[in-house]
Design a protein around this nucleic acid. Structure first.
Lengths: 162, 162
DNA sequence: GCAGATTGTTTGGGGAGCAAACAAATTTGC
DNA sequence: GCAAATTTGTTTGCTCCCCAAACAATCTGC
């Protein structure tokens, strides 16, 4: 609605534009930070000749630390639908990072596990992730980083009440 | 990568599983918070009988505050490709929230503007967004909220160095 | 042993994102 | 002034993420 046209209407090709209330919104800051972090993650891996998304890294860590995990349990841990997980596992399996073994105790489920190549790759990935984390935290002190993670956890807890 | 099997291997259906180093990663916290916030945003709008994504809201605010914006300028402001923007504008235009007018000064560009219905809708959306923001910040003090937004800005600045 | 639940998969649909190619229009170079 | 280069919006093609519904195989409760 009628905003007073206070700013001069950009003499040149407006180097920055009016973002209104957006900069005061947490959701907006979150979205922009997340997309920048994602880009940095991708760039870090690309420069090392590797290809992996943050989601795939999280998945591999979960499988590594919880051997024999079922797809349902993994999907729940990741917060995605079990049908969404299928093509992701297909891809990682095609890259020989992970296997779907038949569960010895339940014929319906698969026991997920890293291959030896997957475990070796995860070690490399972990080093890249640490470098990436170091870079995106380079503007923050150690205590600020801790604070940020803590506050993000609180936001997540508040937001989940659907 | 042999981790000592310290934890008992989950007697029941493991209510929580080993997340390894993930909880210490800023990128991980960011991703989880973002997805929870997104879900809350969608739920807030759904409950009010409206449908809008955070990205669409940001786009509408930008068009509202910068009348006559071109699609290229908008795409740059949103950090997306100009070809990505096309179907998004198509959808908003089909909902009669926004129009592509021919620019009087440059025959190549469109001058984007909200329709009157779009301006009215944006006012409603703004109220919903404020309620949503209030909910996701309900676990934080006012100063914590400010700190969070500030830290997210710093992260974004550090991450952009591709 | 059989009804009901669970698991993984497939299919179908929607959205977000990029790259490359293209026509129309503008700006630049001379 | 006019040809060449650039910019803008669009289309097409590709990849990826996400969900819902349906289905067969398997397990569980009783």
């Amino acid at each position: 609605m009628g905003r007073p046209p206070a700013k001069p209407p950009s003499t040149a090709r407006s180097p920055s534009l009016d973002r209104g209330l957006l900069p005061s919104l947490m959701g907006y800051a979150l979205r922009r930070a997340q997309s920048a972090v994602f880009a940095d993650f991708a760039a870090t891996f690309a420069k090392a000749g590797e290809a992996l998304t943050p989601g795939e890294f999280g998945l591999l860590v979960l499988v590594d630390r919880n051997e024999g995990l079922s797809q349902m349990a993994l999907a729940r841990a990741l917060g995605i639908d079990r049908s969404t997980l299928v093509p992701i596992l297909d891809r990682l399996q095609a890259r020989d990072l992970l296997v779907r073994r038949p569960s010895p105790t339940d014929g319906r489920t698969h026991a997920l596990a890293l291959t030896s190549a997957g475990a070796k790759a995860l070690a490399r990935f972990g080093r890249l992730v640490r470098a990436h984390e170091k870079r995106i935290a380079s503007g923050l002190s150690a205590s600020e980083t801790r604070t940020l993670i803590e506050l993000l956890g609180k936001v997540r807890a508040s937001a989940r009440s659907l």
